[in-house]
Lab assay of single mutants.
Amino acid sequence: KEMRNAYWEIALLPNLNNQQKRAFIRSLYDDPSQSANLLAEAKKLNDAQA
């Protein structure tokens, strides 16, 4: 469930391009235990690109 939530949050971040989203989501599938960390990194990048 945590992975699914992280997937959708990443997919809906407005300032990431599709390539960036795909990279984060690929990492999510590679290591679901890192969901919270990956989401935090994606949000950080999203904010930096705002």
Rank of each mutant, 00 (worst) to 15 (best):
D30W: 12
Y29S: 06
L16T: 00
L45R: 03
A6V: 05
L13Y: 04
Q20P: 00
M3N: 07
L12W: 11
W8Q: 10
A11D: 03
P14H: 06
E41P: 00
Y7S: 10
F24P: 00
S27M: 09
A36P: 07
L12K: 15
N15E: 03
K44D: 06
A6Y: 12
L16I: 05
A36H: 11
D47W: 13
L45A: 05
A50R: 05
R26P: 00
D47G: 08
D47Y: 12
N15A: 07
R26D: 03
I25H: 08
A48F: 13
K1C: 13
L13H: 04
I25C: 05
Y7V: 07
Y7A: 09
R4V: 12
L38A: 03
E41N: 13
A36E: 07
L13C: 02
M3F: 12
E41Q: 14
K1I: 11
N37D: 05
Q49G: 05
K44Q: 07
Q49T: 06
L45P: 00
E41C: 10
S27K: 13
E41T: 09
A23T: 13
M3Y: 13
L13F: 05
Q20M: 04
N46M: 01
I10T: 01
L12V: 07
A50N: 10
E2I: 11
A40S: 09
A48L: 12
S27V: 06
E9M: 15
M3I: 13
D31R: 12
W8A: 09
S35Q: 09
M3P: 06
A23E: 04
Q20V: 04
E2T: 10
R4S: 12
P14A: 10
L45G: 01
P14D: 04
A40M: 14
R4P: 09
L45C: 03
K44M: 12
A40D: 08
A48V: 10
A36Q: 11
N5L: 15
E41G: 05
N17E: 05
K44R: 11
L39E: 02
N46K: 01
D31L: 08
E9V: 15
E2A: 06
A11R: 15
L39T: 04
L39N: 01
F24S: 01
Y29C: 06
A36T: 08
E41A: 14
N18H: 13
I25Y: 15
Y29A: 08
A11L: 15
E41W: 15
K43S: 04
S27N: 08
L13A: 04
Q49E: 05
N18T: 07
A6I: 09
L16Q: 00
K21C: 03
N46R: 01
A40T: 08
M3E: 09
P32F: 09
A42D: 00
L13P: 00
N17I: 03
E9G: 11
A36F: 13
N17T: 10
S35A: 07
L39H: 02
P14E: 07
W8N: 10
A6E: 04
A11E: 06
F24T: 01
L12G: 09
L28K: 00
A48N: 10
F24N: 00
A36W: 14
I10C: 01
L28T: 02
L28N: 01
D47C: 07
S35T: 05
A48I: 13
A50F: 10
N5H: 14
D47H: 13
A11W: 15
A48M: 11
K21A: 02
Y7Q: 10
E2R: 07
K1T: 09
R22K: 06
Q20C: 06
P32G: 03
L38Y: 07
K21H: 01
D47A: 13
A36G: 08
A36R: 12
M3R: 07
N46C: 02
K43Q: 07
L13I: 01
K21S: 01
N15R: 05
P32K: 04
A42W: 01
S27D: 05
A50I: 12
A6T: 10
P32E: 04
A40Q: 12
L13G: 00
Q34L: 08
L38M: 05
N37V: 12
A11Y: 15
L28A: 02
S35I: 12
N17W: 04
L45I: 09
I25R: 03
E41F: 13
N15T: 03
N37Y: 15
K1N: 12
Q49P: 03
M3V: 11
N17M: 05
L38V: 09
E41Y: 14
D31E: 08
P14L: 07
I10V: 04
K44G: 05
I10F: 03
R26T: 04
D30H: 15
R26K: 06
A6G: 04
L45T: 05
Q49C: 05
K21L: 03
R22G: 08
N18F: 13
E41S: 10
R26W: 14
K1E: 14
S35F: 12
Q34V: 05
D31T: 11
K44A: 07
A23S: 12
N15V: 02
E2D: 13
D47R: 13
A42V: 02
R4A: 09
N15W: 14
Q20G: 01
L12Y: 11
I25S: 02
E2H: 08
Q49R: 07
W8F: 12
L28I: 09
Y29W: 11
L45H: 03
S35L: 10
A6P: 05
P14F: 04
A42C: 02
R4I: 13
Q49F: 07
L28F: 03
Q19E: 12
P14K: 11
S27A: 13
L12E: 08
R4E: 13
K1A: 12
E9W: 13
A50E: 12
K1P: 10
R4M: 15
Q19W: 14
D30G: 10
F24V: 02
M3G: 08
A23K: 12
A11K: 15
P32H: 04
K21N: 00
W8C: 10
Q19A: 12
E41L: 13
N46H: 02
R4F: 14
N17K: 04
Q34G: 05
A23R: 12
A11S: 14
E2F: 03
K44C: 05
I25W: 15
N37G: 07
E9N: 11
A23F: 14
N15F: 13
N5A: 13
A48R: 09
P14W: 04
K43F: 09
M3K: 06
Q20F: 02
L13M: 12
A40Y: 12
D30E: 11
K1V: 10
R26I: 08
E9H: 14
Y29M: 13
E2Q: 08
W8H: 11
A40R: 13
L16G: 00
I25M: 15
R4W: 13
I25G: 02
R4T: 12
S27G: 07
K1H: 15
L28G: 01
D30N: 14
D30A: 15
I25N: 02
A42I: 02
S35W: 12
D30P: 02
L45N: 02
N15P: 00
A40E: 07
W8R: 14
N17H: 08
Q20E: 03
L16R: 00
R26L: 14
P32W: 07
L38S: 03
S33G: 11
A42F: 02
Q19F: 14
L16C: 00
N17A: 05
A42S: 03
